[in-house]
Design a protein around this nucleic acid. Structure first.
Length: 256
DNA sequence: AGGTGTTTAGGTTCTA
DNA sequence: TAGAACCTAAACACCT
């Protein structure tokens, strides 16, 4: 079976929904998070069809990002300002596609009210912390209510951007999501090791292909955990320089 | 100003 | 055939 190439669909509309295309883009990135502009770029790079009528499909795509609980907006890390947030896939959304096929979902991914509220609260606390961090760096006192409580001071999830763009997999190769353990999508939960049997190894950018896409090596820590840990370490380092002698967060969590 | 994000609304296509 | 999933359009607010 010949492997479909990048231009397989030519100017024809690919059979993937916007949710699938967005999931592909996010999944193709090393950190499993992308800003909107990078999601656009992934799609237009890969599918010539989407080089036209950009306003139309980009509007639809943004609608899907906001509307579907399977996509989670993660605030930018404070030292990497820019437009828009990062978007990632909710971990529990990995199995929403039938047999891993991206062609059609088996069911809409919907968070329960409580889950959604918790997630929103944590992300809001993260955004507040980022704002406070920026304010402090700019020399202005941070607004007290914006500072997260000690219990909320957990490493944010913003990605460590790789200087090079993510290696983009062949679109047609992304037909399966790896199996992932279900876990709560809280910052704390994401910082927990994936499993006690893990033997941490350095993160490798995932190059997806038919051969490599179906499963992740679960002996690797989750990309979310790695990103959060790296970010946490960097933030503490920055805080030691920029925030002294003012606010310093509680002792760091161990960084793998 | 332009990009990003949210929401609403109405239509089409697919599946059980 | 009904309901779910999906697509499109549009209006609006916010942010850089």
């Amino acid at each position: 079976m010949p492997r479909p190439s990048r231009e397989s669909y030519g100017d024809q509309k690919p059979p993937y929904s916007y949710i699938s295309l967005t999931a592909m883009a996010i999944w193709s990135s090393p950190e499993r998070m992308l800003p909107l502009s990078e999601i656009y770029r992934f799609i237009t790079d890969r599918f010539p069809y989407y080089r036209r009528n950009t306003q139309r499909w980009q509007n639809s795509l943004r609608h899907n990002l906001s509307f579907n609980d399977c996509f989670v907006k993660v605030p930018r890390r404070p030292d990497r300002p820019g437009k828009g947030a990062y978007w990632t896939l909710h971990p529990q959304a990995f199995d929403m596609f039938e047999n891993g096929s991206l062609l059609r979902r088996r069911k809409r991914f919907k968070l329960q009210k409580g889950e959604k509220d918790n997630l929103n609260a944590e992300l809001a606390a993260l955004a507040s912390f980022n704002r406070a961090f920026l304010a402090r760096q700019a020399g202005a006192p941070p607004p007290p209510p914006a500072m997260p409580s000690a219990s909320l001071y957990t490493p944010p999830l913003c990605p460590q951007l790789s200087p090079e763009p993510a290696e983009i997999p062949e679109a047609a190769a992304i037909t399966m999501f790896p199996q992932r353990p279900r876990r709560a999508f809280t910052i704390e939960a994401l910082l927990e090791p994936d499993s006690p049997r893990l033997s941490p190894s350095p993160p490798q950018p995932q190059v997806m292909s038919i051969a490599t896409m179906p499963r992740l090596d679960l002996s690797m820590p989750s990309p979310y955990v790695l990103a959060a840990q790296r970010y946490h370490a960097e933030l503490l380092q920055a805080a030691a320089h920029a925030l002294r002698p003012c606010y310093l967060p509680p002792p760091p969590l161990p960084v793998a």
